[in-house]
Simulated scan of single mutants.
Amino acid sequence: MSQGVKPQFGHRNSAGGGQSSARAAGAKASASAGSNYSMTALLDEQSRQRTLMIVMAVGLCAMLGWVYFSLFNEESIDGKILTSPQECASFGSASIEDCTELWNRAAKIHADTAPAYLKMEQCEQAHGAGRCRQAERSTIAARQTKFIPNMAAFMVERAPSGDMSLSPLYRDPKDGPDQWRKVGPATGKS
């Protein structure tokens, strides 16, 4: 090498160096002509695609989770002791209108099947003061003038066939906090 010429990076200092660099430049040009991306741009594009796929997958999982927990994760009222239509509706598996209808149907069943007394005093003696009322909702005419304990709750039970039965419940003063009394057999199938 001569003293005045410094070798530069990427250049060969040979007589055929010009031809080989021209061939290499031509190969790069033909490779670039076939694809508009350099290797860095290609890797950047793949990285963007992977990121987009991950974001879409996370979004899909979040949406499916929301759908599951908001629509399909309602707690069933089957087998629960329900003390009001509002409590029934709070489980999410029935609307307030449906729960009010169930409450009214259970009250009619209760009026037909609860223990009946000729006088209010007899009923209150057995069930406690303020815990009785007239059975005017009864579908049995003879019971409409009698007195029955108040319905305090009802329970919905659904059979595997899809039939639903309602069981009205009442309480006595001597009953514990988790003790309920059922009137007759579960009726009111729908």
Score class of each variant (00 low, 15 high):
S2G: 06
Q3W: 07
Q3P: 08
V5E: 01
P7Y: 05
Q8R: 15
Q8D: 09
R12M: 11
N13C: 02
S14D: 15
S14M: 10
G16K: 13
G18H: 06
Q19F: 14
S20D: 08
S20R: 09
S21Q: 14
S21A: 10
A22K: 13
A25Q: 09
K28G: 07
A31H: 06
A31S: 05
A31Y: 06
S32F: 07
S35R: 12
N36T: 13
L43N: 08
D44T: 15
R48P: 00
R48N: 12
R48A: 13
Q49R: 09
Q49D: 11
L52T: 14
V55K: 15
V55I: 13
M56L: 15
A57Q: 05
V58F: 14
L60P: 03
C61M: 12
M63N: 09
W66P: 01
V67T: 11
V67C: 03
Y68G: 08
Y68R: 15
F69T: 14
S70R: 14
L71Q: 12
N73H: 10
N73A: 12
N73Q: 15
E75L: 09
S76P: 03
S76H: 00
D78E: 12
G79V: 01
G79R: 11
K80W: 06
I81Y: 08
L82C: 05
S84Q: 01
S84F: 00
S84L: 01
P85W: 04
P85C: 03
Q86I: 15
C88D: 01
C88V: 05
S90N: 00
F91H: 15
G92E: 04
S93H: 08
A94L: 05
I96D: 07
E97Q: 02
E97I: 10
C99L: 02
C99G: 07
L102I: 06
L102C: 02
L102G: 04
R105E: 06
R105H: 05
A106R: 00
A107N: 08
K108L: 02
H110T: 11
A114E: 03
A114C: 05
A114I: 04
P115R: 00
A116H: 13
A116P: 09
A116S: 13
A116L: 08
L118R: 13
L118T: 14
L118P: 13
K119S: 08
Q122E: 14
C123E: 03
E124M: 07
E124S: 00
Q125V: 11
Q125T: 11
Q125L: 09
G128L: 01
A129V: 13
C132E: 06
E136G: 10
R137W: 05
S138R: 04
I140L: 08
A141S: 13
A141T: 12
R143M: 06
R143E: 01
R143P: 04
R143Y: 05
T145M: 03
N150W: 01
M151V: 07
A152K: 07
F154L: 07
M155D: 06
V156T: 11
P160G: 06
P160F: 11
S161L: 02
G162Y: 06
G162F: 04
D163V: 12
L166I: 12
P168L: 03
P168W: 09
Y170Q: 10
D172F: 03
P173E: 00
K174W: 10
D175F: 09
G176R: 04
D178H: 07
D178P: 02
Q179E: 12
W180C: 07
R181A: 03
K182M: 02
T187V: 12
G188Q: 01
